[in-house]
Design a protein around this nucleic acid. Structure first.
Length: 639
RNA sequence: GCCUACGUAGCUCAGUCGGUAGAGCAUUUGCAUGGUAAGCAAAAGGUCACCAGUUCGAUUCUGGUCGUAGGCUCCA
């Protein structure tokens, strides 16, 4: 008889099991359901497979799909499953890396055949077979040299390259049936656990992400323990497609791009321009309220300016070639900052003038590789909601706090509430005095603290010229977008030799902070479209009300209503077309206007409107003035 | 930039194994004058992205250019 050992679970309860039991056996003691759901375990804090045997008293925590670690393991196992299927179908396939990712997994493969979407179905079918075969997934450990020998024997050149980067000693392989892969693990117990999966797409990817290396074929996929969850995930992908700002932008006639004129350049149509204008007017008003001044600066500047600023050195790849004017080179601006500094330098500044908060909706042009352009989200010409703050060291802390508070308030008003901060600190190579870095980083840290934000620290991840805070906001369907940046700059004040006169009558270097709250107007509108799925709150909606007449006789009343609304600063749109009412309502609803108003004989006679609120099927009849009041209230409250 | 796929009417997409093309919606016109998600009919609409090459003939095949989409170290 073997001895009993004590296994302590996360809730501090203790299970006794015979020494030498596997973790899988032990999960069975806790519950059948858990045993089925278990993927791996943490034994005394170490991630391990369920096949591991225990011979001494230990702490145990079971990993299931509900945790991030669990999903990671599950998806990584699914990528092995896929690789096995690929190898069966294409024996010449060589495997590079196949990790789990944020939602799913991929494997990079080198093989002769170029995969098509139909091939994915065949691979899926083969994967299903392997699941049916219920292969045990077994860990094998061996010296690195043996592993190299093994992978040489099956011609897995990428694995050999990976192995050569690993420290000497033992490495682990995971084997399922005829297939074995180099892997740290852990993995699921048996292929039967990987029932619900879907291969999503094929893409090219460089070996080790380096464009000098060979391009491999990458297959993306996703997997779940349950068919229902897979369905949910696929529905989510559909939902993302439906919200695509490029599609909604066309359907709602907001913007376009023109391939014959240039990629990554946005044309704002009347309705898109209204939306943008509403945002910008609001943005300016709030900036004035928050102690900013608004600037306008030129679109081009002489190359000497960009030499002074240093951009021609470290930012050259993103800048367009110069144009010659009167024998001088001019460059279209990729940034607004040097211009703001030029304005700063038009007069001598006392410490009493500071802080200066100078904002500009400045349109900049940056070269982006053609492959990364994407609708409004990644473009070559865009308008930053930029500002620069020039202040004394004493003012830094309050200034940063204030910027952060302002930014968070703005996000809340725009309908985004889930926000996370990322603090990036001094990298190895940097400019600026160390004390300045410390002061700046301290102010950023304190601002985050006082705003009570979730924060992630990126130690050493700052730009060479200063530390920064980025804010990521989560949209309505859970995607994170990096938006706000608050960035110190110790470089430009030096390069332009900026100073102010202190209390002591001496010259002092001001602190300079760049900040963009929305990031770029183009990109932000793109995200806004997807966040609201085109159903903008009334205060932003380019068309707030669509007015529909039942028959020609009401055309006069409808036009009158429209004029009154325009006078009141509202944004109505009339549809007097000689079409059936049903038809016009259908179209108005698909245009996602917050309200559709129908005026027929009854309404015209009684001074009422039949109001149909977006998302509701039934309409309400109310007095015209009551409707105006209701709408105006909704707009004022930015609901 | 690189890989893969794609580019046909304003939009969504068929189609042509090489003989200059079709549907639905949208548009225009006519009829119908309506009560809360598509009334009926007709017409018009295309250099089949662009430029070369092969061919008697190219939207189709080949090459190039431009553009679009999904990707391109989340490191066994």
């Amino acid at each position: 008889m073997s001895n009993l050992i004590k296994i302590k679970l996360p809730d501090s309860s203790i299970k006794e099991a015979p020494s030498g039991s596997t973790l899988y056996d032990i999960t069975g003691l806790i519950g059948k359901g858990l045993q089925k759901a278990a993927l791996a375990a943490e034994l005394d804090g170490v991630l391990t497979d369920l096949a591991t045997t225990v011979t001494k008293d230990s702490d145990l925590s079971i990993i299931t799909f509900d945790s991030e670690k669990g999903r990671d393991i599950f998806w990584h196992s699914a990528s092995h499953l896929m690789a096995q299927a690929v190898k069966r179908l294409y024996p010449d396939a060589k495997f590079a890396i196949g990790p789990s990712i944020e939602s799913g997994f991929y494997y990079d493969i080198d093989m002769k055949k170029t995969l098509t979407p139909e091939d994915l179905e065949a691979i899926e079918a083969e994967m299903a077979k392997i699941v049916e075969e219920k292969l045990d997934v077994k860990r094998e450990e061996m010296p690195k040299a043996d592993a190299i020998k093994y992978f040489s024997s099956i011609n897995e050149t990428y694995k050999i390259e990976l192995l050569s980067d690993l420290p000497d000693g033992n490495v682990s392989l995971y084997r399922q049936g005829e297939f074995a892969d180099l892997c740290r693990g852990p993995h699921v117990r048996n292929t039967e656990q990987l029932k619900s999966f879907k291969l999503l797409s094929i893409a090219g990817a460089y070996w080790r992400g380096d464009e000098k290396n060979r391009m491999l074929q990458r297959i993306y996929g996703v997997a779940f323990p349950d068919q229902k969850d897979l369905k949910k995930h696929l529905d989510f992908i559909e939902e993302v497609k439906k919200r695509d700002h490029r599609k909604i932008g066309r359907d709602l006639d907001l913007f376009s791009t023109h391939e014959d004129v240039g990629a990554g350049l946005i044309y704002w149509h009347p309705k898109g321009a209204r939306l943008r204008n509403t945002l910008e007017e609001w943005w300016k008003k709030e900036h004035f309220k928050n102690g900013y001044e608004i600037l306008y600066s030129p679109h081009i500047g002489r190359s000497t300016l960009w030499e002074t600023s240093g951009h021609l050195g470290f930012y050259k790849d993103n800048m367009y070639s110069p144009m010659e004017i009167d024998g001088n080179d001019y460059i279209i601006k990729p940034m607004n900052c040097p211009f703001h500094i030029k304005i700063y330098q038009t007069s001598l500044h006392s410490y009493r003038d500071l802080p200066l908060r100078w904002a500009e909706l400045g349109t900049v042009y940056r070269y982006e590789k053609s492959g990364v352009l994407h609708g409004l989200l990644r473009v070559r010409g865009f308008t930053q909601d930029d500002a620069h703050i020039f202040c004394t060291p004493e003012q830094i802390e309050d200034e940063i706090k204030e910027v952060l508070r302002f930014s968070l308030w703005m996000w809340k008003t725009l309908g985004f509430t889930d926000i996370k901060a990322y603090l990036a600190t001094k990298p190895e190579k940097s400019v600026g005095e160390p004390e300045r870095w410390i002061t700046a980083q301290e102010s950023l840290r304190k601002a985050i603290e006082s705003a009570d934000l979730k924060v992630e620290l990126d130690e050493g991840g700052g730009a060479f010229y200063g530390p920064k805070i980025d804010l990521k906001v989560r949209d309505a369907i859970g995607r994170e977008w990096q938006m706000t940046t608050i960035q110190f700059d110790f470089n430009l004040p030096e390069r332009f030799d900026m100073y102010y006169i202190g209390e002591d009558g001496q010259k002092h270097r001001p602190f300079m902070v760049h900040r963009a709250l929305l990031g770029s107007i183009e990109r932000f509108v793109g995200i806004l479209i997807e966040h609201y799925s085109g159903k903008f709150p009334a205060w932003l909606s380019p068309v707030q009300v669509i007015l529909i007449n039942v028959s020609e006789e009401q055309a006069g009343v409808v036009n009158e209503m429209k004029n009154t609304m325009i006078d009141r600063g509202l944004r109505p749109q009339v549809d007097l077309r000689n079409e059936s009412m049903g038809y016009k309502i259908r179209e108005a609803v698909s245009q996602r206007a917050p309200y559709v108003c129908v005026i027929g004989k009854n309404e015209a006679e009684n001074g009422t409107v039949s109001v149909r609120k977006r998302g509701e099927k039934d309409s309400i009849t109310m007095a015209i003035n009551d409707f105006y009041k209701m709408l105006e209230e909704e707009i004022a409250e930015k609901r």
